[in-house]
Design a protein around this nucleic acid. Structure first.
Lengths: 137, 137
DNA sequence: CCTTGACCTTCCCATAAGGTTAAACTTTAG
DNA sequence: CTAAAGTTTAACCTTATGGGAAGGTCAAGG
């Protein structure tokens, strides 16, 4: 006697939007749920758990493709945790690289912003830098 | 007697792709360049400087919209460096926030990955975390 | 004159992860 | 019975960029 939820209720319960739930289904992340005679999607507790799984995966920045793999591993009793860890470490690498890139940008930008007096004068180190060395003539 | 460049040459010289140069033009970032009788775009030194400006702006992570504003300020002799600095500091804020979000993710992910033994055993802290507290039953 | 290859043109499609809107149908409350 | 709220599909918007098709142009060589 599991309570079946319509998509709006499942959305509220999982913290996802109804639109995204349909999108995940269309992307192959979720099995197509049963429907009422009128065509309304119905979700049970198991599907709700998958929705929460997806939401947590997105919060950790995993792509839908990665979440797809993680979901498949989760559902597979014969999985090897090695595979899960591999996906996570690949993602960790991506995250670390993005952080490094942003920090690089941050460093340059901070230096330039400090050199720009930021008053009514038109001279600006930021624009000079974007304009490149040839504009220093 | 400025040498006029076709879009492919301008692309090579600026480090952008021809595709992107057309896209920037269509987005209103660049003035529509003169054309040959056959319709080929022609770029002069000034336009080339603008292309380099855009490339450097993108390298610093500015959005096309921000670069649009920066280009307008660059071309405006009556600009106030205050406005430039404002855009840069807004972007710096965005960058700092993204770094913080990624570092948060990094922390959680590292902890989980360390708890996952990563062998042929199916048990995995990463999956457990994604599955949520209700699966701990 | 004709071909070939390297350009160039515009237009359409795709990405990731959603948001928004609209027309039509269903369910529920009063 | 009616009105409100929920659902359905579908389509278009976003950002910045890549890919490809179909066709025009140009220069070199036969």
């Amino acid at each position: 006697m599991t309570k079946l939820l319509t998509i709006g209720e499942a959305a509220k319960a999982s913290g996802l939007s109804a639109k995204m739930i349909r999108h995940y289904e269309q992307s192959g992340l979720l099995d197509t749920p049963p429907r009422t005679e009128a065509g309304y999607r119905l979700y049970n507790t198991q599907q709700l758990r998958q929705l929460n799984f997806i939401r947590r995966g997105r919060q950790l920045g995993f792509s839908l493709e990665e979440i797809h793999s993680l979901l498949n591993l989760w559902r597979d009793p014969g999985r090897e945790s090695r595979e899960v860890k591999h996906i996570a470490e690949k993602h960790l690498q991506d995250v670390a690289q993005k952080i490094a890139e942003l920090q690089q940008i941050q460093g340059v930008l901070e230096k330039l912003a400090n050199q720009c007096c930021g008053n009514s004068n038109p001279d600006c180190a930021i624009l000079d830098s974007l304009a490149g060395p040839e504009s220093m003539v």
